[in-house]
Design a protein around this nucleic acid. Structure first.
Length: 562
RNA sequence: UGUCCCAUGGUGUAAUGGUAACACAUCGGUUUUUGGUACCGUCGUUCAAGGUUCGAGUCCUUGUGGGACAACCA
């Protein structure tokens, strides 16, 4: 961004304040701590940009840490996908960490807690434990095992660790305060038995630490100076600090948890659970379906890493509820693609156009500019001939003055070719136009420099030569949800707002030069939008995803209600 | 009938007690071999009431509205 006045966000204020109070800048250290239980989405992208952006701003390291304390939900494939996404965004982590690397240390600290009389084994059912915990408005009560002896606690904990007990028989709880107004302080569980293989530690452990016990201590082990998380963890801060108090060495950096509001984007859901539901219900074809606002879905759709980073930067970070309009994301996408994408011509809804005064059998090669934004991208060759395809909606027999396209008796320019004039059209029995006839001005060839070629005509159409056209599959995407905020309705489930027309597959006619494109390449279909080559492309058929349309002010004139 | 968090144009974010601003969106115009881009302009904002102060979006009080908290999830 070219802001002369780049202002701090409140997170940077917190850091600057700590620096002013004497924290050595070299002690600054951040982390991005995903749980490997699903794919990262656009909300995570914001958090990644925040943490790694801070690392870049202050010139200090950022760790990628997998919060992998629940083997029932986590899988190695998600670890790989997450690493790939972070790298694709263009960030480099300092150290790749796993909370599971700290299992032994966490266990040792837990034993210490028991020795100090600050943790105990509870042998009640989860139902009873929940009952005794009270509610947000009512205090909890002490359970019957709260005052077990240190020896008994130690022996039971050891037994849990050695796999002598089944799931739910015993848990280790911190002994804090069952009457606290903060429910998280009502003797939170530190360890539970989980009889599942872990993606990294296998069956080494029978017990697994809970989030609260793990997260702050992991930050401390890694000497993270500032641990940023979303607002829902705000009540956890008190517990985060209590756990830190039990182990902290004042010589070392004491991590500081601070919270920011998660970013919500309109017309989508940003919750791993809900995204998973879309995948499992078959509404979309996987986590990387181009309609998904997962990072991998956006990538496949044709979003660039820069567009996502610019988006994250521009929406900023704060502590209030928000719903960022999807068009904000699309603005940054178009802005980036406009600079980067070559232009090509492709007709999505073809209708035949015959240039009646053009010689039969003749064809010529036109030079077409690859980018109006960047001359250095050069030219490509586009064949022209008597029979062409143009877009069906680019012709009307008669139309009002606002319509700049082809009508009978009016002139338009064929992009990179000639100026033509509509003469007549042929219809089938149902009145559908099957063929349009036009005449061309032979002196008006684009780039010829003749007076005729410089003539000003209002409309310019894209086209492809019928004989040279190559059919391609194009997947036209629309928003996945029909309402801005599908998951906040009080009565309806978010799945009820799925847009049934979020994907339409068509066969389009492309100019031959497009055959050289490779999977992942993005081009602008002139006058239509940005499209990228999908991995489903085969030797015989190219498959394109519509990344985003161009802004279309004509559509607004046509359908003012949209 | 508890504790905590939040409240600035339609949306998002700034203004750090001293002239309320930036981006997107809207609407209009200029340029244009993309009804794109670029450029210019337009519209419109401090939840309410009290208080402190020479001066309050900012500090205090009380309301109002929204949100979080009762997983052996993270």
């Amino acid at each position: 961004m070219n802001d002369a006045v780049k202002r701090n966000n409140f997170i940077e204020d917190i850091i600057d304040e700590d620096l002013e109070k004497g924290l050595d800048q070299k002690k600054l250290r951040f982390r991005f701590p995903p749980e490997p239980n699903g794919f990262l989405h656009i909300g995570h992208a914001s958090a990644i940009c925040l943490n790694f952006g801070l690392g870049q701003k202050y010139g200090q390291p950022v760790n990628l840490r997998f919060d992998d304390t629940n083997p029932a939900k986590e899988e190695a494939k998600f670890v790989d996908a997450i690493k790939n996404d972070v790298e694709w965004l263009g960030y480099e982590w300092d150290t790749l960490c796993y909370a599971s690397d700290y299992f032994q240390q966490l266990y040792d600290w837990a034993v210490q807690l028991i020795r100090d009389g600050k943790a105990y084994i509870d042998s009640q059912s989860s139902v009873l434990i929940a009952e005794q915990k009270g509610t947000p408005t009512e205090p909890g009560i002490d359970g019957p095992f709260r005052n077990r002896s240190v020896e008994e606690n130690l022996a039971l904990f050891e037994g849990m660790k050695n796999g002598e007990y089944g799931e739910s028989e015993h848990v280790l709880r911190a002994k804090i305060n069952m009457q606290s107004t903060n429910m998280l302080m009502r003797d939170p569980i530190l360890y539970r038995v989980v009889d599942r293989a872990h993606h990294r530690t296998g069956t080494d452990w029978k017990i697994y630490p809970m989030y609260d016990w793990t997260h702050g201590e992991s930050d401390y082990i890694e000497q993270i100076s500032h641990s940023f998380c979303t607002l829902e963890f705000l009540p956890h801060r008190e517990l985060y600090n209590w756990f830190l108090d039990q182990v902290v060495d004042t010589e070392k950096v004491r991590p500081k948890q601070r919270e920011f509001a998660r970013r919500n984007v309109s017309h989508t859901v940003t919750s791993k659970r809900k995204l998973q539901q879309l995948v499992e219900s078959g509404v979309v074809n996987g986590w990387d379906d181009p309609r998904m606002t997962t990072i991998s879905g956006l990538r496949r759709r044709g979003y660039t890493a820069d567009s996502i980073k610019n988006f994250a930067e521009s929406i900023g970070i704060a502590r209030r509820e928000n719903l960022v309009d999807m068009n904000h994301l699309e603005y940054h996408l178009r802005e980036d693609l406009n600079k980067k994408a070559d232009r090509v011509m492709c007709v999505l809804d073809p209708v035949k156009l015959v240039i009646t005064n053009y010689p039969d059998g003749k064809s010529e090669i036109m030079d077409a500019e690859n980018s109006q934004e960047d001359e250095t991208r050069g030219y490509r060759e586009v064949p022209f001939s008597k029979e062409l395809y143009i877009e069906r909606e680019d012709f009307m027999e008669s139309a009002n003055k606002k319509y700049f396209r082809l009508t009978i008796g009016k002139e338009v320019r064929l992009k990179n070719a000639y100026i033509i004039k509509g003469e007549s059209c042929v219809k089938d029995a149902d009145g559908n136009i099957t063929e349009i006839h036009a005449t061309y001005d032979p002196d008006s060839k684009s780039g010829s420099g003749t007076e005729a070629s410089m003539r000003r005509v209002k409309g310019t159409l894209h086209w492809v030569s019928k004989e040279h056209a190559v059919p391609v599959e194009v997947r036209m995407y629309d928003r996945l949800f029909t309402v801005p905020s599908p998951d906040t309705d009080k009565e309806k489930e978010f799945m009820e707002f799925v847009n049934p027309d979020s994907l339409t597959t068509i066969t389009a006619m492309s100019e031959p030069a497009m055959q050289h494109l490779k999977v992942g390449d993005t081009v602008q279909f002139q006058r239509l939008g940005y499209f990228c080559v999908d991995p489903d492309t085969t030797q015989d058929l190219m498959v394109f995803n519509r990344t985003v349309t161009l802004r279309d002010t004509w559509a607004k004139v046509e359908n003012p209600d949209d």
